[in-house]
Nucleic acid binder design. Structure first.
Lengths: 291, 291
DNA sequence: TAGAATGGATAGGCGTTGCCTATAGGTAGT
DNA sequence: ACTACCTATAGGCAACGCCTATCCATTCTA
């Protein structure tokens, strides 16, 4: 039983004639005849009575007709669904972001995206990098926003922005008014850093390593705002990316002059995974905002 | 979009692997791959993400899957309907019968048939021959029971029984006690006959013609029972087929000895029309009862 | 890190099958 | 009887699905 056979069958039922059905189906009459015969053969019963002048459905044909139509209707519905969804920006998108990016970068982007594409259901997951990568692998997250580079080429990365690192100093610190400083200049200061697991901690430690600085860490937290509070209270110094700067805090921010004291934020997707139009729209918005 | 493509697609979705799907579908993996590719090509979008180890449905694939299943389910339903109806004795059967046969032959057959095949919805139409033939042509009647022969080979006839004709005489008629009589012997009697249009009238007239008798018709009716009543009242004589004999009436019935004074009842169907199992069952019951 | 194993895509050949044209065979209508 | 119309059949051709062999990428293992 093939689809074209069902189509031919319906055409004959509609037109009441093999010839007209063939014409309507854009095939020759013998071809159509053959296919109807073949269909009848497979079903083991006649679907039409050939009565000289006209062709009429048998009882069996009468019950088969609506079923055949149903098959074709379902088929069209399937095709329709695809073309509809294919070029519509809708559905749901799950964004993952690391905690050291989420509160600074996402809010503006999310609101803008929601305003632009209200059809899309947005979900945001805030997790540390390895968890996000796992979620990407499992397709539980569509796009992850995190610090590059990511190793392993099962992922595909799109760099978004590279931001300088800043030293965070108490307002009355002796270096507080400098235009820039080197990490070496704060090597003796007590350090406040993010907790282990947060990738920005690796960024900071890596920057220190490069500068041959081995900071003495006296406080760890899961969020920058805590660090800023502690620094403001004079507990020590810290290191943060530009986007975490908070003018309202009690701190001074001085750019780090050491080369490579930066972090790069990028969007990461699972390599080979097909992205929906909504996914792509979000990606392009990300790039736009990163400029 | 072809059915086997949908089947392959579902198989891949089910097994999560092209290879296993191919095995399950009894085709080689390359064949299945090609067909999936072709399907994706036609739809203009990927249905699966090929991720090294595993294969996963895309968003689009996820919405396509239930639709594809629906198509295949409808297809199976269609096939199921056919095989079920093909060899079941059910549905409806419409029987046509002429008025000079219906009340005598049908009642027993109908009750017997209904008892044997309660699933079949029986309808009976009582009309004169030309009307029945029209109904046969229009497939409004499946099987007509009427007097043969029928001319025109758009019909197919199955003789059921040939019955002798009887003269109907008043009980005190001078020929009433004869073992048989010839039409010639009643040529002078006033005749009571069926109305024009009833084919038995033609039967009767034909029998008279053959016997070179030209009866003087003084009464016409649409049913034998009226004729019998009138004959019983002494109005004249009549001619009826055996099955119309009514012992309870006030008449004597004497066989007609003239050769060919018979009528043949047969079942007639539209030639080339396919008969349902129910139709065939009714036909065979007809033959059985006619013996 | 090399090598084996797994799984999907590609290439090329083969057989089936659906479609074509031409024609036969049958039934209405003139 | 002749014509017109319609479906079935015959035979040839091209397309397409399936096959085997092979490639290529990823993943697992030594």
């Amino acid at each position: 039983m093939e689809l074209h056979q069902l189509r031919y069958f319906c055409a004959v039922a509609d037109t009441g004639s093999f010839s007209r059905a063939a014409e309507q189906s854009h095939v020759s009459q013998p071809s159509l005849s053959q296919q109807i015969l073949k269909l009848e053969d497979e079903l083991g019963a006649r679907l039409f009575d050939r009565l000289g002048r006209s062709v009429r459905l048998t009882e069996l044909g009468k019950t088969f007709l609506p079923r055949a139509r149903a098959v074709l209707r379902e088929l069209e519905a399937a095709r329709g669904d695809v073309v509809e969804q294919k070029d519509s920006i809708a559905g749901s998108v799950t964004i993952g972001a690391i905690p050291t990016v989420a509160p600074y970068l996402l809010p503006r982007i999310l609101t803008s995206f929601s305003r632009k594409f209200p059809q899309v259901h947005l979900t945001v997951v805030e997790e540390i990098t390895p968890v996000l990568l796992d979620r990407l692998r499992a397709s539980l997250v569509d796009i992850a926003v995190l610090a590059l580079p990511i190793r392993g080429h099962e992922f595909e990365s799109f760099p978004l922005l590279t931001e300088p690192l800043f030293a965070v100093l108490p307002q009355k610190h002796k270096l507080a008014m400098r235009r820039s400083i080197s990490l070496k200049e704060v090597r003796k200061e007590p350090f406040l850093l993010l907790r282990d697991g947060h990738c920005f901690r690796e960024n900071a430690v890596a920057a220190c390593d490069r500068a041959r600085v081995h900071p003495q860490v006296i406080f760890e937290s899961g969020q920058f705002s805590s660090l800023l509070g502690m620094v403001g209270a004079g507990m020590g110094v810290s290191l943060i990316p530009q986007m975490a700067m908070d003018k309202k805090s009690n701190c001074r921010y001085v750019p780090i002059s050491d080369p490579g004291a930066t972090r790069t934020i990028g969007a990461v997707v699972l390599r080979g995974r097909s992205l929906t139009r909504a996914n792509l729209s979000f990606l392009s918005l990300l790039r736009q905002f990163a400029k």
